[in-house]
Amino acid sequence: MSQGKETIVSYLTSVPAWYLSTVEETPEGPRPHVRPFSFAMMQDGDIQFCTATTKDCYREMAANPSVELTAWKSGAGWVILRGKANLTDTADARTREEGFKHMVALGEDWASADDERLTFFTIEEAEAWICDIDGSWNPVEL
């Protein structure tokens, strides 16, 4: 398992929210669309993220898989992860249950961990950095 991926998950799970940017197609052309997320979990060496097939971000990632996320942790700078969303849901039962519980705790309405709207994705071709106010971008080996 990649220590770099563990570092990314540690950042993302240590803050109340982190931010995912997708590409939104508009009549004026493609635009970034940023929103808060808060679920990330390691499974079989991959970072699993959770959303719903009914949400804009899912449709945007299906149309254009380019994504970038960031999280800032006090005293530790911020993390940037960018790559291509892979919408193939490979979540196992434990990951699905954890994602389900997390989403319900946020106030979302789900029938169960097997609700067909609940979906998980990974990020491929990923690059990551830990950045600091001094302008440094330190690569994280994934």
Rank of each mutant, 00 (worst) to 15 (best):
91 A>N: 04
79 V>K: 01
86 N>M: 06
94 R>C: 05
96 R>S: 07
47 I>A: 06
120 F>T: 00
102 H>V: 04
2 S>T: 14
106 L>T: 06
126 A>P: 03
49 F>N: 02
46 D>W: 13
34 V>S: 10
63 A>H: 10
68 E>Q: 14
69 L>K: 09
58 Y>G: 04
17 A>Y: 15
1 M>N: 05
84 K>G: 03
134 D>E: 10
15 V>E: 00
105 A>P: 07
8 I>Y: 00
116 E>L: 11
104 V>Y: 05
91 A>H: 01
88 T>P: 00
140 V>Q: 01
23 V>K: 05
141 E>K: 12
25 E>N: 07
69 L>A: 14
13 T>I: 07
91 A>Q: 03
28 E>S: 14
71 A>C: 06
69 L>E: 01
34 V>P: 00
10 S>E: 13
9 V>D: 08
49 F>D: 01
112 S>D: 10
35 R>Y: 12
99 G>Y: 07
28 E>M: 14
26 T>D: 00
118 L>F: 07
91 A>D: 03
121 F>Y: 09
44 D>N: 15
27 P>H: 05
114 D>E: 11
101 K>Y: 11
65 P>K: 07
128 A>Y: 02
17 A>T: 13
86 N>S: 10
79 V>Q: 03
32 P>A: 13
54 T>E: 10
39 F>Y: 13
110 W>P: 02
89 D>G: 09
100 F>T: 02
7 T>P: 02
90 T>S: 15
122 T>S: 12
54 T>L: 12
